[in-house]
Design a binder for these strands. Structure first.
Lengths: 219, 219
DNA sequence: TGAAAGGATGGCATTTAGTGACGCCAATGA
DNA sequence: TCATTGGCGTCACTAAATGCCATCCTTTCA
């Protein structure tokens, strides 16, 4: 998703630039959170690390803990875009496997480092309630995306109760697997040992939706 | 901690008293949150409403928003205890229906008022991120309880990955239905219109676990 | 029954997250 | 060129949250 880089800055320096600025702050904040803990990290420290005034930090983030949000969100961005690009005629297993191997081959170094930071933040969420909020917010985004995709596949509105229930169940299953895999990687498990992860995820999503989501759709 | 000292005995606020105090504070705080919004409610206000000093409030709650936690937790306590009391030989549908009708008959006024407050807090969680944290924490508790129950039914340890995935999916489905029913009740829908709620919940849990959880268990 | 002990509370000072107000400066546009 | 705009920094300030200490209340034991 990040292949586009050069020649930006057109028109106003707003949306994209703002996003990148938030990401820069988030990287430094996450690094500090991981190194010293959340409580031991002050807004002033984050500001100094990223080379901005404290006031500017608060202009871009509602709270200290929310500084972790962009990085955490990056950790689920792959899943979000994978869901978004799921063609109706493919099964979830096939699509996930293909996208996963593509990520393994094509991911940039920055993407890998951000992913690693995201995993650390998810780990921190275990013990730091403040960070847990950010993680759950990201999961909430995944759930909404999931609702859209499921609604499309089932030919129902995204507000339909069954769709929402399926989306919640599927994204919850996805969350647990994410936490599990992330924890294992931090423990030192070789990421290659998770070659079957896409299949496992697909299977979990299929099961969590009672089999309603996973098969190819023929309209 | 060397030697088994008389941990009870003298001094020390009993767990029960502490719990009741937190609940009292939570009732007032929730009432204020609902009436004026979270931001407009100060710690001093909560303290005055409950007749304690502000300092004491901070002794019993880590943060302002966490004052809502006990009430929100009460909103899921029924489900937790219902899950805990689920006999192996009953199907989920039958047990939930029985417990639900029992609650309708036997719930005290205080319980009903607390439940109403909890529903309001869950509603607030839609727009107030601070309260959403409390709601998601409560859902997390339900998920852990669910994992215990599922583990017992499936004869697996609660840490088993499949068990955790099933628990996450099931409790997420439960969460969405809770939010849906709560929102409808606040809109003025007659609670009697939700007579089929237990069946619906049971069905959703069964579906979310891929059918693995719901049937009677014969050991 | 009267200390003694120890936790619970309140008051005060202090730190820190977060906001408001104002001014500066760079980029844009006529 | 000047005026506008918008991001940023500085200062002042509100409110959340913690530490410290004096006090109160309760339980236990002599």
């Amino acid at each position: 998703m990040a292949g586009t880089a050069p020649t930006k800055g057109r028109g106003g320096m707003s949306d994209q630039r703002r996003h990148r600025l938030r990401l820069d702050v988030s990287r430094e904040a996450s690094r500090l959170f991981w190194a010293q803990g959340v409580d031991a990290t002050s807004g002033d420290q984050i500001a100094e690390a990223v080379g901005l005034s404290t006031r500017t930090i608060w202009r871009h983030f509602r709270s200290k803990e929310s500084c972790a949000e962009p990085i955490v969100m990056r950790g689920v961005e792959w899943e979000m875009s994978t869901l978004r690009s799921w063609p109706p005629q493919l099964s979830l297993e096939v699509h996930f496997a293909a996208e996963s191997s593509k990520f393994g081959r094509e991911a940039s170094d920055v993407e890998r480092m951000d992913t690693e930071l995201a995993i650390k933040m998810i780990r921190l969420a275990d013990t730091e309630p403040a960070i847990r909020t950010a993680w759950l917010m990201a999961c909430d985004q995944v759930e909404r995306e999931m609702a859209e995709i499921i609604a499309g596949r089932l030919g129902l509105p995204a507000e339909d109760l069954d769709v929402r229930v399926h989306a919640a169940a599927a994204s919850a299953a996805l969350r647990v697997l994410n936490e599990h895999i992330g924890a294992a990687i931090l423990e030192g498990t070789d990421p290659r040992d998770f070659a079957d992860a896409p299949a496992r995820i697909a299977r979990a999503v299929r099961a969590a939706t009672g089999g309603a989501v996973g098969d190819p759709v023929t309209t």
